[in-house]
Design a protein around this nucleic acid. Structure first.
Lengths: 396, 396
DNA sequence: TCAACTTTCTCCACTCACAGGACAAAGAAG
DNA sequence: CTTCTTTGTCCTGTGAGTGGAGAAAGTTGA
């Protein structure tokens, strides 16, 4: 099947494509209400989009008291591939142009095996999704990787947890393999974009999205746009010092936030507690599973295990302390907590909220919601699809 | 004298005005090189600007190998008023449209006396500057206040150190008094804009500007634009927790950065040291002056006083620790240190640098200059002038 | 069933922004 | 004094965009 080659010819068309992406099928009249163009000009641009095939007619809408409108929508055959590579697992999803997830796969993975092995797996997953008939090819792909990225080139730079990826031309390589445009970004930024598109952050211009998984990162959105920093490492809060001269961290420093709370740190602390006989619940799980993860701690906490609850609260306090500082500094309109450890749920959230509301200035916290992400593991892949659609739906 | 009523009629004119502001007199040809318009269109817009009086002819430039160019420049009679209200002093300056300082006054002041008393003083200072013949009136004024501001309305909100100002319609009131457009912003943001316009930050898109005076604040510039946050309190880093359960702070919390280092904290620590006999140098100054300020500590340090040097280093470490966190989070391209305590100079800077370079990730610090502000006390007033000029030099 | 009103969409003529070339003015270099 | 360069102006063609007229397709009420 011939894939999308067309791109919007001007800013108007780009605007229209994004409106159709975010608002679904729409009539010319409805589009006109949102776009500040005369009806005639708008009709011309819509017709041109129809010619390119990016947009197709979508039948008649119900009357609103007059002539029924002819709806248009984004071509329903367009397909985006969203890939969210984590430290220990990978999500791959297929979406349509409205960024609805049509198919989603998750597999365990060790990112340290390097880009070649990982992409082999990712491509196999994409092929599997294609084989189900969801897609005949992809019009674009967004890729999230767990480390800083030089965004314009789509190349990871000095990623601590995946050293083999440093400088690997992810964008170029995958674009070649998939035969479509590719954009690459930090996984945390993609999660923020996902929650912005379809989650809790739909109406907020400036917000923070804290992702707590194997590590900790923070997506920063300023004026509706992801802020990536000068070298692409903005939001790297895992190695902010939480405790002066504290625990040693894998990064070589001491007292980093990640050394105190993250999926990895929590698992280790739980293991210690179990072995020291502090928690029968955890010890039992350790005996049956042969190991402990954040999921075990969540389950134990849900079962009322005091030690697990303490671990979560203590970790939440640490993260909350750092977030409190960021809130004072950044004065966001919303803080989203997401990532693997959201399974820890409201115990974690309560601890974070307590710290932030106690430590930050009233003006910054007065009207500040701190909430869990809404999309769970799909946030990343939806964000990835949004990333590439933002790119494709902008003037060529 | 009739003051400027004209405003640029479109984005092109606004662009041209800003080019003339930032680049001084220019020929049509030179402007054309920067603005991506055809010569004809550009000539039309320049002519229109000449008609409005915002721009005037400025004679012939030297030949560059062909016909000599007719320079144009911003009307040299345009005058902006820059006001930087600090906690304990106020700066008032008059600039031309190119934001060159033509006259500058500084007076002590207690901001807690409230807006009415303060504005009386500010207006008297403005009148004094006018009386010297520098200006017959003002075409616009920028006002900086030491607290958060609801920017669109120009109204301080919940300012901790100037409670009497809460909700006072600064913009409206001063606009009435001065008879010209007025914009109001946080003093720290103005300092950042000043350093951006005429100081060390001229070429950087994303940077932080830490102002250490009576308190501590941080201007945040994203993509060349000041970021103010959701409620206008972005950059309020003085009450980030530097030490868990540390010293009590005036804000009611414990361990705030400001409790450890700021002009006020430094003066108090120096006093303690002098009274405990730890420093003969400081004790002598206390005896002669009857009190100590950051200036005394700076002088003592310059004279080699070990206690003073220690105080500065210790404070620098605290600030540096917080800045290190912000650098990890924000990944700026530059960090500017400014405000009253810049007199502490390189001892302070060295301490800050040590902390940041040690604690932040290499990717974020690798190419990160940390420097003192270049403009000193004029940064604020230049920033204020820039604020109002940005407003006036945008399409009506 | 018909008239009156709404909403949606299309067509057309007119305006204006803008580009780009021709050309004039003014100086430099040989 | 000729040629080349730079700068600025004039003019015309093009295409973007507006706004009105009117057709198409419905709803509503008498």
């Amino acid at each position: 099947m011939r894939r999308m080659t067309a791109r919007p010819a001007n800013a108007h068309q780009a605007r229209l494509l994004r409106l159709l992406r975010d608002g679904g099928p729409n009539s010319r009249a409805q589009l006109g209400d949102q776009v500040d163009l005369s009806r005639s000009k708008l009709a011309v641009e819509v017709d041109r989009l129809l010619e390119t095939g990016l947009v197709v007619a979508d039948g008649l809408a119900a009357s609103r008291g007059g002539r029924r409108s002819h709806n248009v929508r984004l071509n329903p055959q367009l397909r985006f591939l969203g890939v969210d590579i984590g430290a220990t697992s990978v999500d791959v999803a297929v979406t349509n142009a409205e960024l609805e997830t049509l198919g989603h796969l998750n597999q365990p993975l060790d990112v340290r095996e390097g880009p070649v092995a990982v992409f082999e797996q990712v491509l196999a997953m994409a092929a599997k999704l294609k084989a189900t008939g969801l897609a005949e090819g992809f019009d674009g792909a967004g890729i999230g990787v767990p480390g800083p990225v030089r965004f314009p080139e789509g190349v990871p730079v000095a990623p601590p947890i995946m050293p083999g990826w440093d400088g690997f031309p992810v964008r170029e390589a995958l674009s070649q393999e998939l035969g479509c445009p590719v954009m690459v970004d930090n996984d945390v930024n993609l999660m923020a974009m996902g929650e912005q598109h379809a989650g809790v952050a739909r109406t907020v211009a400036d917000f923070l999205c804290v992702k707590i998984g194997t590590g900790i990162g923070c997506g920063i959105v300023v004026g509706g746009q992801v802020y990536r920093g000068t070298t692409g490492s903005a939001g790297d809060i895992g190695h902010i010092q939480a405790v002066p001269d504290g625990r040693p961290c894998a990064c070589g420093n001491r007292g980093c936030l990640e050394a105190y709370f993250s999926g990895a740190a929590l698992a280790r602390d739980a293991m210690d507690a179990a072995q020291q006989g502090l928690s029968a619940e955890l010890a039992a799980r350790l005996a049956t599973n042969g190991g402990l993860t954040a999921v075990d701690v969540a389950a134990a906490a849900a079962a009322g295990d005091a030690t697990s609850l303490d671990l979560i609260r203590e970790g939440g306090n640490r993260v909350g302390q750092v977030i409190a500082g960021l809130v004072s500094f950044f004065n966001p309109g919303l803080v989203v907590i997401g990532g693997g450890v959201t399974g820890l749920g409201h115990t974690l959230l309560a601890a974070i909220r307590t710290q932030v509301y106690r430590q930050s200035l009233p003006l910054a916290t007065g009207n500040l919601p701190i909430v869990l992400g809404e999309l769970g593991p799909t946030a990343g892949v939806i964000g990835a699809a949004r990333l590439i659609s933002d790119h494709l739906f902008s003037p060529a």
